[in-house]
Nucleic acid binder design. Structure first.
Lengths: 226, 226
DNA sequence: CGCACGGTTGAAGCGGCTCAATCTGGGTGG
DNA sequence: CCACCCAGATTGAGCCGCTTCAACCGTGCG
């Protein structure tokens, strides 16, 4: 993208709003209007099940789009909530369409962003299908740490991680109770520590090994940063 | 899309090839060149794990794209194999790029196709994370049956389903042994029957109920058909 | 004929779940 | 400043779904 395109995008993000934690950006079934860009804070997308269970599908960190598809398809199939107090930029649907009309560069950027998201979704499926609780949680922590690092919000072995054990459980498909036990075991084994909304990686090598963290996948995440 | 666009796409699909079952379309780590369109037969995308396990990420039926991103990102993060003998159309990368240059309509069509794929991936995550073996298998069968019906390859209660129990296990994240037991229980309860490469739905209502099959998700799948 | 692959079945073990109680720290009202 | 409350973290005990291991069957095919 050239400067002009960047300028257009930045310009589009001027409609900013501050939201408290636990605020719903979109509910499943809503008529999709605006697109969101996270400027500050955390949010997540999730789906509810008939039995009241919840499955978190993605975490949104500062700089992330709220899945663009929401403005394209007529119906939404999942919801978004803020996890922390957050600042988001709103892009009305019309403006979104206008951006796409301008030229292929921006459209392609959106498209490309989709591909990265898909890659994350695929990794998520692998975690759910083939990894143990321990591996899943380690993998999630790796992913989130790397993403935080890519946007300059992590230092060497530590970063902010405002996730409740219940939220983690909903993300990795486990019980909060069991998440707790796994976190404890990782703590006593001096692999990583998660407390007070902050993640500390004590043994990066071992953590990556437990997680089976894919360098290829990681690479792509890193490229997203530039 | 107008007729001209459709013509361009159809024209792009002239490079056709017949492949045997078990043929790898792409291997993880390959340098991505062509894009594939399934014309006939089944294929699937999957990822291998260090321990030798396999997780299937998507099934490709006639009419499906082989994930477009493969031609966009430089590295591939998963592989594709044919499940049955198959006929595929090859789109060289350059031709793909050319199609995108032509105009926003086709680009947007690709983009939109991505969104549908993402929706399926999300549903898959929900299955893995929050559903029992029985529910997962029922859901997979619902999805595949609907997709077959959308492309005119299913009749009222029956369709082709050339999946081995091992393949199903790799898709839903279970053991082949357990898949077998679940299939048996669904059979004796007269819900559905899967044998000899063919699926028969005996009690559609009960099957959908077990699967927790989402009408919204279904709706979008149906729209893909037009 | 025999081999190989996919389906079928049984027995035993374990990872993660359920239920339930206790603990902790931060916030709130008095 | 204290009593209280509440959400989240922690821990224990028992159970169940799914896995593991292992054997056996059926069938298509070289």
């Amino acid at each position: 993208m050239n400067d002009a395109d960047v300028g257009l995008l930045a310009d589009a993000c001027r409609n900013v709003r501050d939201l408290p934690a636990g605020h719903h950006l979109i509910m499943e079934g809503d008529n999709p209007d605006p697109v969101f860009v996270m400027l500050d804070g955390w949010a997540c997308g999730y789906k509810m099940l008939p039995d009241g269970g919840r499955q978190i599908l993605a975490f949104m960190l500062p700089g992330d789009f709220c899945d663009i598809h929401i403005a394209v398809l007529r119906a939404i199939d999942h919801s978004f909530v803020t996890i922390t107090p957050a600042r988001v930029a709103l892009l009305p649907r019309a403006q979104m369409e206008a951006l796409v009309e301008i030229g292929p560069t921006i459209t392609r950027a959106f498209w490309w962003s989709q591909l990265v998201d898909q890659s994350v979704l695929r990794a998520w499926i692998v975690s759910m299908g083939r990894r143990t609780a321990r591996e899943r949680i380690a993998h999630l922590m790796c992913e989130l740490y790397i993403r935080m690092r890519n946007i300059g919000l992590a230092n060497d072995a530590n970063c902010n991680m405002p996730l409740t054990q219940l939220v983690i459980a909903d993300a990795v498909g486990l019980t909060p109770v069991h998440v707790n036990r796994v976190l404890k075991s990782l703590r006593v084994e001096k692999v990583m520590e998660l407390s007070a909304g902050s993640l500390t990686i004590l043994d990066p090598v071992q953590l990556a090994e437990i997680a089976g963290f894919d360098g290829n996948y990681l690479h792509r995440r890193l490229r997203k940063a530039d």
